[in-house]
Design a protein around this nucleic acid. Structure first.
Length: 885
RNA sequence: GGGCGGUUAGCUCAGCGGUAGAGCAUCGGUCUUACAAACCGGGGGCCACUGGUUCGAACCCAGUACCGCCCACCA
């Protein structure tokens, strides 16, 4: 007798198996089949696992485990991202607590300290992934700033520079005054906030009148170098070219004509601040206007803003400007207005558009091939709708600001010579060589994090070196990622992959579900709405967490995963209960195996209905789970196996075979039954393993089988030979019959302990055959002591009667019968059938239906209707005889 | 301003042209020797709204409302 605890205890199991799997090298490539490779989206090295990660990496582990079992040569490369701004923020925060800034340390010490911190605590998220059960190849672990990765980044920069794809430019970019760095367009969030629209009077220098301009940002007027109106605007025809005296500043600025001013907005005149607005910058270029920077990199007013404002924070300056304008009577009016506001994705500080010199990547030529491969279907998005989102963005792509004014990251490999020439090189020594004796100085800035992560698939496989891994595993098979980084990351990998590898980086892009909180908002740590997956694992186990998430992971449909204690438990409890069910069903099988020899996991042929049926059900489950995984319908896979295991296997098959399987004496028949039940259980475990790796391994190890680990056991195969429509139909009848008897017992308040007699009337040979074959099972599952079968049900007195699957049934109750209750039950039953019959009759009376509906549908409707009519008649007769009593 | 999702039982969600489904919750009954984290049975839904297509619509089409995302330089 194998001793197993009554309930599944996940923790000891999880702790036991993960190290075993790892040390036996199961995570390494090795299958003899075709390759299947995933390079996981690298989480931030500073990060810890949140619920979205848990889903993302569970999905990838399911795929890799499944393909591994299918015999593919699988490789899943893990890694982390240096996450420039995020990591620098973490270290700066630490410094702040010590009363220091990074400038107190200096660049080198700051970078060293960051490295040290990463070495000490950077692996947190990796160990959390291991706890989740992820079967990743840890010996190939990569970091976006490790030695080889630096080579990849440098190679990319140099090659793109040499191809003319990288350039230096001065233009208005998005500047975050808190992070004190430039950021790219897609790192900016747009949000509409309630604000004001200020209408300001700008007087002409000659005193001949005023022009009213409207702005949401009055402080920028200090940097105005023109006012523009539409050339077609009749109101301004006579005043174009006149000079305005800029209030508060006194600068003489022209009134220019430019299409950019829309006549229908406000007065039709717009102030032009070329250094602090993208559109104004372009207008400034067209009209050759001065660009006066009045807000600095920290968000404070510069000296050029004038003595009265210099040094003020931009929002304080706004107040003072308004006060001063009001004092001078220059405010025409102030309206409530919805202001579109841009904020930094990282810290939510309001972005300052700022004239600044930065490095850019020219995107058009890189984008075209990346558009083509998606249009041609070589890279497929799942769900498909994301293809359009990707293409729309790619077709309107703008140049990419890649320089960041940070210290943590890949330093830009550009050196400037004393005479001002740019030298771009893969290393300092190469740069010195190229400089030919001139002194050189490296650019202070670092590259956007996404510049390096955009090289991920090829770089982790060894590029720029031509390694065997790169040769073997590029392109990878699938990228599983969140939809909010399609632009930031996915697009860049496709572009760089095509550029450097001349091939796509992955076949499929699976955009997985966003995990929302109970109010439908995205779960995020900063909002405090996150569920900590490690807490969930502690409470319920890794398998339960995985299953709870995966069973909800319809293709890209958002998942509402409540964060509040009570509801959260409900959602994971469902999965935990399932794990427990698996545990106990296995316990039942193992207890009955005992010491019996000659038992193996093997299908011993059998004619018995239950056996034929479960084999057919199992076969269907294999087919459905496999095709669901193939199409990234992980929820369908989870659901299918859940129902097969719980409903078909536990509730019916185990119950139907229990008497044989748990028989004391081990005959050949019992041995064969044990082999079959072990086979079904063991095959189910293999189907379940990718979803719930730990519990399936623990049980698998205790079953008779061949092999070392379920991880490397073969994936179950379906076979048409196991399909059995007859068995499925017969079983359906049997289930309906047993359920009906149980229903009568329950509705008539008959105690479970009391054994019933059951009379069945049917003239149908097929039904009789089924009843004879299954009588023992009916007796046990319906708790009946005696079954009497006849062609016609005799006149019964004091019996509960019903009809099911064409059979009349009666449960004699003797003096126990409550006639009112029985009448009630029959009427309820009859009404249900009458309603259905009425709707079918309506259809059959409809000439159009009869003429136009397909023949099979008409036939089906007719026979179902006839069946119902017969049943209703029988119920009616029962009622009449009841009435007589 | 464009675009994309969603709206089905109290809750979380499947179903996407031929009799409304699951899990949880709820109600009734069970400590029936694998499992009370379980077993057995029941109740509960004008499938957001309005039109249209169809013999037939939760499902297809058009529009409306609400919720949520994404994109966009209108001061």
């Amino acid at each position: 007798m194998t001793e197993l605890s009554k309930a599944y205890e996940p923790h000891s199991v999880e702790e036991k198996w993960y190290p075993v799997w790892n040390s036996r090298g199961y995570f390494k490539p090795g299958g003899t089949g075709p390759k299947y490779c995933i390079t996981i989206p690298p989480p931030n090295v500073t990060g810890s696992l949140h619920i979205g990660h848990a889903l993302c990496y569970s999905i990838q582990d399911v795929l890799i485990r499944w393909k591994r079992m299918q015999g593919f040569d699988t490789l899943c490369v893990p890694g982390t991202d240096h996450a420039g701004i995020a990591t620098q923020n973490v270290i700066e925060k630490q410094l702040k607590n010590e009363g220091l800034t990074r400038h107190d340390l200096g660049r080198e010490a700051f970078v060293n300290r960051t490295w040290q911190w990463i070495h000490e605590t950077g692996g947190v998220i990796l160990s959390q992934l291991q706890r989740l059960g992820c079967s990743f190849e840890w010996d190939r672990l990569r970091f976006t700033m490790d030695e080889g990765y630096v080579d990849a980044v440098m190679e990319c920069f140099v090659e793109w520079w040499e191809a003319g794809l990288i350039y230096r430019g001065k233009r208005v970019i998005n500047w975050c005054p808190r992070c004190r760095t430039a950021i790219s367009d897609i790192e900016v969030s747009h949000e509409d906030r309630p604000g004001k629209l200020y209408h300001i009077r700008y007087p002409f220098e000659d005193g001949s009148g005023i022009v009213v301009v409207a702005t949401t940002r009055p402080e920028t007027m200090l940097g105005d170098t023109a006012v523009a109106a539409n050339p077609a605007d009749p109101r301004y025809q006579k005043v174009f070219g006149k000079v305005i005296s800029l209030p508060l500043v006194g600068r003489r600025i022209p009134l220019i004509a430019d299409d950019y001013a829309k006549p229908e907005f406000g007065s039709g005149a717009v102030k032009v601040t070329p250094a602090h607005d993208v559109n104004d910058f372009e207008a400034g270029m067209r009209h050759n206007l001065a660009k006066i920077v009045v807000i600095d990199e920290g968000g404070s007013m510069t000296a050029d803003a004038g003595e009265r404002y210099a040094g003020l924070d931009r929002f304080e300056a706004r107040e003072r400007v308004l006060e001063d304008l009001t004092a001078q009577g220059l405010i025409e009016k102030i309206e409530d207005y919805t202001v579109p506001e841009a904020t930094c994705d990282r810290c939510h500080t309001v972005i300052e558009p700022l004239l600044s010199e930065q490095w850019f990547v020219r995107m058009k030529d890189l984008a075209q091939p990346a558009i083509d491969v998606v249009k041609q279907g070589r890279v497929k998005f799942v769900p498909e709708r994301y293809e359009k989102i990707y293409l729309d963005w790619m077709e309107n792509i703008r140049d990419w600001t890649i320089s960041r004014q940070l210290w943590w990251g890949h330093r830009i490999p550009v050196w400037t010579t004393e005479d001002g020439e740019y030298i771009v090189a893969r290393s300092e020594s190469e740069a010195l060589k190229k400089a030919g004796g001139r002194s050189i100085k490296q650019d202070e800035d670092v590259l956007d994090t996404w510049f390096s992560s955009g090289l991920w698939p090829q770089a982790v496989l060894g590029w720029p070196k031509q390694t065997p891994d790169l040769e073997r595993y590029y392109p990878t098979s699938v990228l599983t990622t969140a939809r909010d980084i399609i632009y930031l990351w996915v697009s860049r990998m496709i572009m760089s992959g095509l550029y450097f590898m001349k091939d796509i980086p992955f076949d499929d892009v699976y955009i997985y579900a966003t995990v929302l909180d109970e109010q439908g908002r995205r779960q995020s740590k900063s909002l405090g709405t996150g569920v900590d997956p490690i807490d969930v694992i502690r409470l319920y186990g890794a398998d339960a967490l995985r299953f709870a998430l995966l069973v909800r992971a319809a293709r890209g449909q958002d998942i509402r995963f409540a964060a509040i204690e009570k509801d959260r438990q409900l959602q994971v409890e469902e999965a935990r209960n399932f794990a427990n069910k698996i545990w106990n069903a296995s316990r039942f099988v193992l207890m009955n195996l005992g010491d019996a020899s000659g038992i193996e996991s093997r299908w011993v042929p059998s004619d018995a209905l239950a056996d034929r049926w479960i084999l057919a059900e199992l076969n269907a489950a294999i087919e459905q789970v496999t095709s669901a995984l193939d199409e990234y319908r992980l929820n369908d896979a989870a659901q299918t196996i859940y129902h097969f295991f719980w409903d078909s296997f536990c509730d019916w098959y185990i119950e139907l075979t229990k008497s044989v399987v748990s028989s004391r004496e081990v005959s050949d028949e019992v041995r064969a039954a044990l082999c079959r039940i072990v086979y079904v259980l063991e095959t189910s475990l293999r189907l379940l393993h990718p979803l719930m790796p730990y519990i399936t391994e623990e049980i698998w190890q205790q079953l008779p089988h061949k092999g070392d680990s379920i991880m490397v056991a073969p994936w179950p195969q379906s076979a048409s030979a196991f399909e059995d429509q007859t068995a499925r139909a017969r079983m359906e009848t049997l289930i309906a019959l047993i359920t009906k008897v149980r229903n009568i017992r329950s509705e008539m308040n008959i105690p479970v302990q009391s054994r019933l007699k059951l009379w069945i009337g049917t003239a149908d040979a097929e039904s009789k055959d089924l009843l004879n074959e299954s009588s023992d099972q009916i007796k046990r599952l319906a708790r009946v002591e005696e079954i009497t079968i006849s062609d016609v049900l005799p006149e019964t007195h004091g019996a509960a009667r019903d009809v099911v699957a064409g059979m009349d049934i009666a449960v004699p109750l003797g003096g126990l019968i409550d006639f009112n209750k029985e009448r009630e039950r029959i009427v309820k039953e009859k009404t249900k059938k009458e309603n259905e019959a009425r709707s079918l009759a309506g259809r059959l009376d409809n000439i159009s239906f009869m003429e136009r509906a397909p023949r099979e549908v008409v036939q089906e409707t007719r026979s179902r209707h006839e069946e119902l009519i017969a049943e209703i008649e029988k119920l009616q007769n029962t009622l009449v005889s009841l009435g007589a009593n």
